[in-house]
Simulated scan of single mutants.
Amino acid sequence: MTAPIETTESQAGSQPESVLKGVKASQIEGRSLGRIAWNRFKRDKVAVAGGIVVILLVLLAVLSKPIQAMFGLDPNEFHQDLIDPALLSPKGSWGGMSWDHPLGVDPQYGRDILSRIIEGSWVSLLVAGGATLVSVIIGVIMGVTAGFYGGWADSLISRTMDVFLAFPLLLFAISISASLQDGAFGLSGLPLRIAVLIFVIGFFSWPYMGRIVRAQTLSLREREFVEAARSLGARGPFILLRELLPNLVAPILVYSTLLIPTNILFEAGLSYLGVGIAPPQASWGGMLSTAAEIYQADPQYMIVPGLAIFITVLAFNLLGDGLRDALDPRSK
């Protein structure tokens, strides 16, 4: 009589589930695509570091007002007693750095640089995030429509993208921002400027997202699961919402994280040119614009907001690269 063969843990992976005995459920549990992508992402330490920095920046922007109230910071409070009237520069060394002002003060009015950096964080992230949301919504709708239906719809939308891509965005942004400074659409002041920046940047940058979504849709519409849905009688809207869009989440998410730093730089550039966020509201681009005029008096006033923009853009780029590698390892 032959003795029964015992199944070891090393052999468990090659045995059918119906004959497994004494094997833990965790050893045969399947993993979802999201979990596999998360495991890939965790192994990329650089991308994880970028994600941590992004989370901290978002928390800083959301909690900027409570943080300032907690520590008694006021980004627009003048400290003329900290400015040397003869040299027109902060008293002391390193731009007037002290325990009360860890990053120093600006040479014009003695305003605390740290509080202005914190105040400018929510402005930059709000404009960049809002503009990215607008461009993603329009780009996904246009890209999916063009890629799925094809024909005259594809031709019309593609030519519209070409027109938008050839449009002088910077000149248009400067002109419309300058013309709407007093008031429009029931808004005025800072809310108006933020709304104009979100509209201009988001509305004219959607073709970049639209092209990527269109290319992905052209590839997905020929896949077997789409043909299977058609054979079962599914119509176009159902296929778009239930079959194509879930498979487009990964490229949309990745490109969105790469689009945010571009919008941050664009907002900073407009504020630097004086047609973005108007003073006395603090913004990183506005601080750079002021620093360009007083660079010789206090170079630190340019370095600090420049580093803030650099770290933010770098963190979002690292996060986007990590998400791309995790969600689509074949892109490496």
Rank of each mutant, 00 (worst) to 15 (best):
A178M: 11
N247L: 08
D182N: 11
Q216G: 15
T217K: 09
L241E: 00
T257V: 14
L258M: 13
I252V: 15
R223P: 00
A229Y: 04
A250W: 03
P237R: 15
V213K: 03
I198R: 00
G274T: 04
I198V: 15
L273T: 00
V163D: 07
L232E: 14
A166I: 00
P251N: 12
V163P: 01
L220H: 10
S155F: 05
A268L: 03
L240V: 15
P237W: 14
N263W: 00
L240Q: 05
N263C: 06
L265V: 04
A195Y: 00
R214S: 07
P261S: 13
V226L: 11
G236H: 09
R159N: 08
L187M: 14
A173T: 03
N263A: 12
P237G: 13
M161A: 04
Y272F: 15
G233L: 04
L180N: 13
G189T: 10
L171I: 06
G233F: 07
R159T: 04
L244M: 14
L253E: 07
E227T: 14
V200H: 03
P237C: 12
T262A: 14
A195P: 01
Y208A: 13
G183F: 09
W206V: 09
S177W: 01
F238V: 14
L156C: 07
L156H: 04
I252T: 13
E267V: 02
F266W: 05
P246K: 08
A173C: 01
W206L: 09
G269A: 10
P168S: 02
L244G: 02
I174E: 05
L273V: 01
G189E: 13
F167N: 03
I201C: 07
L171E: 05
S177D: 00
P207S: 06
R211D: 09
S205G: 11
A178G: 11
L187D: 07
R230E: 10
F167Y: 07
L244R: 05
T262E: 15
T160I: 14
S179M: 14
A178R: 11
I264K: 02
P237Y: 13
L218W: 10
R223W: 06
I264H: 04
S271W: 03
I157L: 12
S256T: 12
